[in-house]
Amino acid sequence: MPGLEDLYREIILDHYRNPRNEGTFPTPPAIKAEGHNPLCGDELTVFLILDGDVIKDIHITGQGCSISRSSASLMSVAVKGKSLKEVDHLLKIFKSMMSISTNASGEPEAVEPIEYSERELGELIALQGVVKFPVRIKCATLSWNTLVQALEDRAS
């Protein structure tokens, strides 16, 4: 069985205890989307301030477990100031890190359908251990899915 340290890295606990970019923004000018994880009742709202195709600022509120809260905080740091294209790339590599398949002995293992370097992930790499706890993957991806939702809502 994977150990707790695989899941609860120091960085994760730090972002959980001291979430970055916490709060709301008035809409407009901000756009927002709400995300739910029906399994555990986690909820969060992502607020984005866009400047052209750059995420100028981001705030997140909500409630949830340490993984969903810290992932949201880590994401906010990772995407702030980035262009939508860069964000899209980050999203892809993050999702790729979070996706699992099972190996021959039936154990979950990470698949890496796209090439990326750990450096690109930055602090997000701290969430790597989550794939060893498949039920928690949804917690880690909730904020990212909500971010995508906000951007899609804007587009439509």
């Binding site: 986690d42 949830g64 477990c65 993984i67």
Partner: peptide, 8 residues
Amino acid sequence: IHPHDISQ
């Protein structure tokens, strides 16, 4: 502590 973390 969130229940999800507790049960984990």
